[in-house]
């Protein structure tokens, strides 16, 4: 074991006036406060932490601008999305929980735009209830997971009760920008995912690899180190497990550099999980860029 001690030096200097820190400063004299301050500007992670957990949609063209000088394959894929009506992207914060936050937003917006929101909310509620026995089977403390899950159930019940927080897209986004609520929902979804993988170990175990070493992991190790802790990215196993556990279709548009050739009927690669992923089945639709997930939708509402 080892530590990167040079990244975390000591508190030796006197409190008081901020001093000038430059290349001549002895790193071992930095205080905790000075380190935090220095890291604020440098650290990409900190930059991410100031972004909203999830935000109201931006036009797809905004995403395209980021790639204007980039790969032509990616631009082609973005143009295909635009031509086919996928015109808005709901950004999630890139903190390792973006899949679960994107899933939640897409899940709730799907209920909002159903022809019968109350019915759809009831179905969602029932799906979640059906996922609970697996959690108990895995030995998760009932009182504990119910506390996390409650944040999600409150929002789903709100559709049936005509609550304000779920009556508009804006209301949903605002509800999910509350850190405590959003984090609780992330934990709840992680536990649902974990308990599905644990109770379907035979199905998943051949595919459970460490994302850093690519060595196989036992189901227990995988769930403990890659699913349950916050900040750990979701990969295919997690995505499939959550879709199956909640009985919902998920389609993910892969915005990567892979070439699809001229014979593909769409210029972007959609990877599908869970049940009915055809358009009438109204699957959740996400946009994947290596290492990050957002939600992509067709703007179905008249502009307000």
């Amino acid at each position: 074991m080892s530590t990167q001690t040079d990244a975390a030096p000591a508190q030796a200097s006197a409190e008081g006036q901020p001093r000038v820190i430059d290349e001549n400063t002895d790193l071992s004299t930095l205080t905790d406060q000075e380190i935090m301050k220095l890291m604020e500007g440098m650290d990409h992670q900190d930059d991410q932490m100031n972004k909203p957990l999830i935000s109201t949609p931006v036009p797809l063209s905004v995403i395209r601008q980021e790639y204007e000088k980039g790969s032509t394959q990616i631009l082609k894929k973005l143009d295909w999305l635009a031509e086919n009506g996928w015109d808005q992207v709901w950004r999630a914060r890139g903190d390792g929980d973006c899949y679960y936050r994107s899933f939640t937003l897409a899940y709730l917006v799907r209920i909002l735009h159903s022809t019968d929101s109350q019915l759809e909310a009831n179905l969602a509620y029932e799906s979640i209830q059906r996922a609970l026995p697996a959690m108990e089977q895995c030995g998760f403390d009932k009182e504990l997971y119910e506390e996390f899950l409650d944040s999600l159930l409150v929002l789903i019940r709100s559709f049936a009760e005509g609550g304000e927080s779920t009556s508009t897209e804006y209301g949903i986004v605002q509800s999910l920008q509350d850190a405590e609520r959003s984090n609780c929902i992330v934990v709840a979804l992680r536990l649902i995912t974990s308990s599905y993988i644990r109770t379907h170990s035979d199905l998943f175990s051949p595919f459970l690899l460490s994302p850093t070493t690519f060595l196989p992991l036992s189901t227990d190790d995988f769930c403990r180190s890659e699913v349950e802790p916050c900040g750990k990215e979701a990969d295919h196993a997690q995505i499939m497990a959550l879709a199956e556990a909640l009985n919902i279709g998920v389609r993910i548009a892969y915005l990567d550099r892979s070439d699809l050739g001229s014979e593909a009927d769409s210029a972007i690669n959609w990877v599908e999980f869970g049940k009915d992923t055809s358009e009438p089945g109204r699957p959740l639709t996400l946009l994947y860029r290596p290492g990050h997930y957002d939600v992509v939708t067709k703007d179905v509402l008249p502009q307000v």
Binding site: M1, S2, T3, Q4, T5, D6
Partner: peptide, 28 residues
């Protein structure tokens, strides 16, 4: 003690969460 104990202790922040740990082997 861990390898490099003295060096770490001399320069460690008061809050260990600010240290970027590198986990080699949790079974030791």
């Amino acid at each position: 003690r861990p390898e490099g104990n003295d060096r770490y202790v001399r320069t460690a922040p008061s809050n260990p969460k600010l240290t970027r740990w590198h986990y080699d082997d949790d079974t030791v």
